[in-house]
């Protein structure tokens, strides 16, 4: 590496100045006058940040609508400064935006924001997730009843869920589909949302109480029967029939494993 030590130093200085505006720009940038050097360097700084802000805005459109353009830009810049990308694939950027929002003081009055970020990130993952066949609920009918205790339901690679203390799906829905956002009262209960993408469109579906535990248990390899017991142990009102119908109807189950 020693042959490239000058270039390494230059790239290190360039990087530092890109990420932290207060850092001096590299001395090796050819001099005209200082203001001009700064102006030229700022094109790179702006290109980088504008690209990332736009990428985050495309990934988190409801958060963008909730807080507005200007606020979102400042918030995104704070995030970028804290966590610049570590992958050449732009689609991987922004996974930790929810975690960032949890401690971002200016939005402390919007406690549902981190969960909204989680919902939008899961939606993004579902969009890009690998394809898979979809199992039909009718396949369950063809199984011998004594087999039902043994079967495992495999989740589609695009399927995930989010259990929130806030009505995030309702907030997402009105901010996505309504020109004028519907007021949402503070008394509305939390919602569990199924995120999946059976074919090309990403779907968000409300799930009944306890379904989140059920899905997590399925993902951990429990049988349908064990997963249902887990969900019932957590919420006595867990409704297996409704949950199964919701999962199969949304194309969230890719395969029924007989035993």
């Amino acid at each position: 590496m020693s042959a490239y030590s000058d270039l390494t130093l230059l790239q290190q200085q360039f990087t530092a100045a890109l990420l932290a505006p207060s850092t001096q720009i590299p001395a090796a940038i050819a001099p005209t006058d200082e203001a001009k050097r700064q102006k030229r360097f700022n094109v790179y700084r702006n290109n980088m940040h504008a690209g990332l802000v736009a990428a985050l805005g495309a990934r988190y459109p409801v958060i963008l609508r909730l807080v507005g353009d200007e606020f979102f830009q400042a918030m995104a810049l704070a995030f970028i400064r804290q966590e610049p990308p570590t992958s050449p694939i732009l689609a991987e950027y922004g996974a930790h935006f929810a975690r960032f929002l949890e401690t971002f003081e200016p939005t402390a009055d919007l406690p549902y924001l981190p969960d909204m970020a989680r919902l939008e990130w899961l939606r993004h993952l579902a969009y890009h997730a690998p394809d898979s066949p979809i199992a039909a609920i009718a396949e369950l009918a063809s199984l011998a009843p004594e087999k039902l205790g043994e079967i495992r339901l495999h989740l589609h690679p695009a399927a995930s869920h989010l259990a929130s203390d806030y009505p995030v799906l309702t907030i997402w829905q009105t901010n996505t589909h309504d020109a004028t956002v519907q007021p949402i009262s503070a008394d509305r209960p939390g919602e569990t949302t199924l995120i999946t993408r059976p074919k090309l469109d990403v779907l968000l579906c409300p799930l009944p109480i306890g379904a989140g535990i059920f899905i997590t248990a399925l993902a951990e390899g429990e049988t349908m029967s064990q997963a249902a017991a887990s969900a019932l142990a957590d919420a006595a009102s867990f409704d297996l029939a409704k949950t199964l119908a919701a999962l199969f109807d949304a194309g969230a189950i890719s395969h029924i494993q007989p035993d």
Binding site: S87, I89, A91, Y127, P130
Partner: peptide
């Protein structure tokens, strides 16, 4: 090609389709 490499967990969906 970077836009067709998924989001970290394999790649499918509309871009590949």
């Amino acid at each position: 090609p970077e836009n067709y490499m998924g989001a970290g967990r394999g790649a499918g969906g509309p871009p590949q389709y």
